[in-house]
């Protein structure tokens, strides 16, 4: 007994070392990011308070770039508005003939505006922390966009903070397509540059040009169809020649992210129950 005790005391360094290494390896290799506990992320109470305080100062640094983005966006929208007004005028003339009333369709999507309080672009797995959480209606798996394009998907929510898996994180695979046709590929970051991602598994017969816009496919509840993602800058064949993989320049500037919109899909629950029914009935048939 005494020998065992002596042995334990003598090699306590190594035992403690092993314990810490195993503990950190468990944290490190629990690869499923959805299982992470909120207190060990930047959405935890202490970390989020610190980030919120620092953001009150650093939030002003990128204002010039953001302002430019907004003005560009504003100009685009004004152009669109003018075009639409013209169309409306044309159509109103036609509508005089019809007695049909124009319905306003209840919109399926709504937005929650949130401030970014922490963001990284230089790691291999990047995350973003938001200032709003479950108390403001955020739930995991909601999509996040900013004025330019797709940003990421909500991953862990605290009461007043939430962590978002950035597009710049290989855990996130986004179903996307080339604007104007229906073939879907999956967008994933390759870990190299913070403004470029890869659109993989796009079938070989899809027609596209360099400079075409890539948009979301709408196959998940996170993003509606047609949210802009980026433009094609180059293309290459995948290993087996049946698929293209496209390099996509992202519209979103992740280095100056400050305010984002979280997309709330009113049909999430409905879709989920419907899809659950399908899998259950399939299981019964088997």
């Amino acid at each position: 007994m005494r020998d065992i005790l002596n042995f334990l005391i003598r090699s306590s360094n190594w035992i403690l070392f092993a314990v810490y290494v195993i503990a950190s390896c468990i944290l490190l290799f629990s690869t499923n990011p959805f299982q992470h506990h909120v207190y060990l992320t930047s959405a935890g109470a202490v970390a989020s308070t610190v980030y919120r305080t620092s953001n009150t100062v650093t939030g002003y640094f990128a204002l010039r770039d953001i302002n430019e983005d907004l003005q560009r966006r504003n100009a685009d929208l004004e152009m669109q508005l003018l075009g639409l007004q013209q169309q409306l005028r044309d159509q109103r003339l036609q509508l005089y003939a019809d007695t049909m009333t124009v319905d306003t369709v209840l919109s399926r999507y709504s937005f929650i505006i949130a401030n970014v309080i922490n963001n990284s672009i230089n790691r291999s797995h990047n995350y973003i922390t938001l200032e709003k959480g479950s108390a403001d209606g955020l739930k995991p798996e909601m999509g996040v966009v900013d004025q330019n394009g797709v940003v990421g998907i909500v991953n862990v929510t605290g009461e007043h903070t939430a962590r978002v898996i950035s597009v710049l994180n290989p855990y996130l695979r986004l179903s996307c397509k080339v604007k104007g046709n229906q073939h879907v590929g999956s967008l994933q970051w390759d870990g190299k540059r913070h403004d470029v991602a890869l659109l993989e598994e796009l079938p070989r017969h899809v027609k596209f040009k360099i400079g075409d816009t890539i948009v979301t496919s709408g196959f998940s509840t996170a993003f509606p169809e047609g949210v802009p993602v980026g433009t094609v800058i180059s293309a290459q064949k995948d290993g087996d020649d049946n698929f293209y993989s496209l390099k996509v320049r992202l519209f979103t500037d992740f280095s100056t992210l400050s305010t984002v919109r979280v997309i709330v899909d009113a049909m999430t629950e409905e879709l989920r129950t419907v899809e659950q029914d399908i899998t259950e009935s399939r299981r019964k048939m088997n």
Partner: peptide, 24 residues
């Protein structure tokens, strides 16, 4: 030293969302 090292690493991990990387 080990304990303090692990604690420092874990706190930096929490700030940068890198589970156990700095701790290890």
């Amino acid at each position: 030293v080990l304990t303090i090292g692990f604690a420092i690493g874990l706190s930096v991990d929490i700030f940068s969302d890198t589970y156990g990387m700095n701790a290890l």
